[in-house]
């Protein structure tokens, strides 16, 4: 049984359901795992390298999903804290460090978003019929930089997570499926629907954002 399982959820989850098989490529392609082993052996330089490499990615993902810098900051510190705590038990090859960490972040973000909605499970919430209504007004004032974030904030949580992981973090669908604990087909569906929704939200803002037809 994997001691370092792919479990970032605050709720108790069976490690068996959260572990996954890793190929030998995962071992070779995961320098973060080597750094984590050095960290667990007391190497302070490894701690610094891991912090510098992973923190910006974690913060970026949390910020895009939550749309709030202060909350993203808390999530980043908490996610890294969990990594430091699990380091002595980490078994290289059973999970990629970055995949495990993204999953922790995804679950922490889900918890935060759930609290914002008053504890109602996200699955019980219907997708907004027309999320563009509230977002469009904000887009009128927003810069191009803010536009994508405002549109992302209007997406349902799972779509947002999938779109951010796929199109901003640049992860492959199989890795996203591990992070979100869903099938690859579900990831493809979420990202496709998310992109359609984003396009619909942003389509009326082409001129305001400086994207005229001849530029794109």
């Amino acid at each position: 049984m994997a001691r370092a399982c792919l479990n970032g959820a605050p709720a108790a989850v069976s490690p068996k359901t959260m572990s996954f098989d890793a190929s030998i490529d995962d071992v070779v392609d995961d320098p973060d795992a080597a750094l984590l082993a050095r960290y667990a052996d007391g190497d302070e330089a490894a701690a610094r390298l891991l912090t510098m490499q992973l923190s910006p990615r974690v913060f970026g993902h949390a910020f895009r999903v939550l749309g709030d810098g202060a909350e993203a900051e808390d999530v980043t510190q908490e996610a890294l804290m969990r990594l430091w705590k699990i380091a002595p038990q980490w078994r290289t090859g059973e999970a990629k460090v970055s995949t495990w960490l993204y999953r922790v972040v995804a679950n922490l973000c889900t918890d935060r978003l759930r609290k914002r909605r008053g504890g109602v499970p996200l699955d019980d919430i219907a997708e907004p019929a027309d999320p563009a209504e509230s977002a469009e007004a904000k887009l009128q004032r927003g810069s191009r930089e803010d536009a994508l974030q405002i549109a992302l904030d209007a997406l349902p949580e799972r779509q947002r997570q999938a779109v951010v992981l796929r199109h901003i973090e640049g992860l492959a669908n199989p890795e996203i499926s591990e992070i979100l604990d869903i099938g690859v087909e579900a990831v493809e569906s979420l990202t496709a629907r998310g992109k359609r929704a984003l396009t619909a939200l942003l389509s009326g803002q082409r001129d305001a954002l400086g994207y005229s037809d001849d530029k794109t």
Binding site: D41, S55, F59, Q77, W84, A87, R144, L148, I168, L202
Partner: peptide
Amino acid sequence: LFQDARATPPAMPDGLMDRIMADAVAQQP
């Protein structure tokens, strides 16, 4: 817009890296 977002990730808040590093050292075996 995705390309812009990838090129300009959100800036880390002041002091966050230091706090994370302090956590790392405190938790390190």
